[in-house]
Amino acid sequence: MSAAHPIVRPTLAERRKQETRMDIARTAARLFAEYGTAAVTAEQIASESGVALRTFYRYARTKEESVEPMLAAGAQRWLAEIAAGPHRLPIADEFESAAVRSLKLGDSPDDLEITRGLLQAMETDPALRAIWHRINMEAERDLHRTLASLVGSQADLFQLRVTAAAAAGAIRVALELWAASNGPAEGPNSPADLVVRCMRQLHVAD
């Protein structure tokens, strides 16, 4: 029997970098949601994050790109939930429950409101919208790879590709609908509720 692979934990320096990157992302997202992207500068984001402008540009090439960690965090939690499941293609209920758990384990009510404002700001900001679509495309590719790993050599490549696209698309659409409708954080028309409804509408897996 082969030895189990040791768990590789991030170093203290790596954790601090991750925390700094997320602090910058939250600050940028809050400012964009409150004032709009056009009115916010990289210098303002850096100042309110408590870092030098030079440090800001080590974490993001543009002010819009700085929000990426915050927008990607939910997808990363969801992928981790899927990857921890049985070594087979998840059924619809498992996709739904993984999405709901990742939402409940994630953003605070304040973060959800910031995310709402950020998604609303994207309607008039092509650069910010491009970041959102890139994050979702990467999440779809990561989900496809995760599903292929779970299924193994018996994978139906067509089914995996379509399932990954439908599942990732359901979450994106749910969050956009929630932001546009000013729905609550919990209960009917919340992100979790809309994710389940979107997945059922799109018929993710049988």
Rank of each mutant, 00 (worst) to 15 (best):
R172G: 10
V67P: 01
S49T: 08
D93H: 12
Q76K: 05
S49K: 04
R116V: 11
L147P: 00
L177P: 00
M122C: 14
W78P: 00
G85N: 05
L105T: 08
G106Q: 03
G74A: 12
D156F: 10
D156E: 09
E138V: 08
Q76T: 12
L177S: 12
A139S: 12
V100P: 02
V162G: 01
T146V: 14
L71F: 12
E68Y: 10
R116I: 10
L103A: 14
D125Q: 04
A52S: 13
G85Y: 02
Y57C: 06
L160E: 13
L112E: 06
G74N: 12
R129W: 13
G152V: 09
P90D: 04
R58G: 02
Q159A: 15
D107Q: 08
S108M: 02
V151K: 04
H133F: 14
R88H: 10
A180S: 09
P69V: 02
W78C: 07
E96V: 15
H87A: 15
A170C: 03
W132R: 15
E123N: 03
R145D: 12
E176F: 11
Q154I: 08
P184E: 07
A170I: 06
L112F: 10
D93N: 14
R77G: 00
E138Y: 04
P126W: 09
L53K: 03
D142E: 14
E96C: 12
E81T: 01
E94Y: 08
F158W: 11
A92Y: 09
F95E: 11
L157I: 13
P109S: 07
L119K: 04
Q120V: 05
P69G: 04
L160A: 08
D111K: 01
G169R: 07
N182C: 06
Q154R: 13
S181N: 07
P184A: 09
E94C: 09
P126D: 11
F158E: 12
E123M: 07
R161C: 14
N182Y: 10
L175V: 13
A174Y: 03
A167Q: 09
I91S: 10
A165K: 11
R54A: 13
A60T: 01
A92N: 15
I131C: 05
T163G: 06
P86S: 10
A98T: 02
L177M: 14
A52N: 06
G106H: 01
R141P: 00
E176K: 08
V162N: 00
A72E: 11
R58D: 02
A155C: 06
A73L: 10
D156T: 07
T115S: 12
L118I: 10
R145I: 12
A98C: 09
P184Q: 05
L150P: 04
S49Y: 00
A75W: 13
A130M: 08
E64F: 08
T62R: 13
L71T: 12
S97C: 08
L128V: 09
E176P: 01
H87D: 15
R129Q: 13
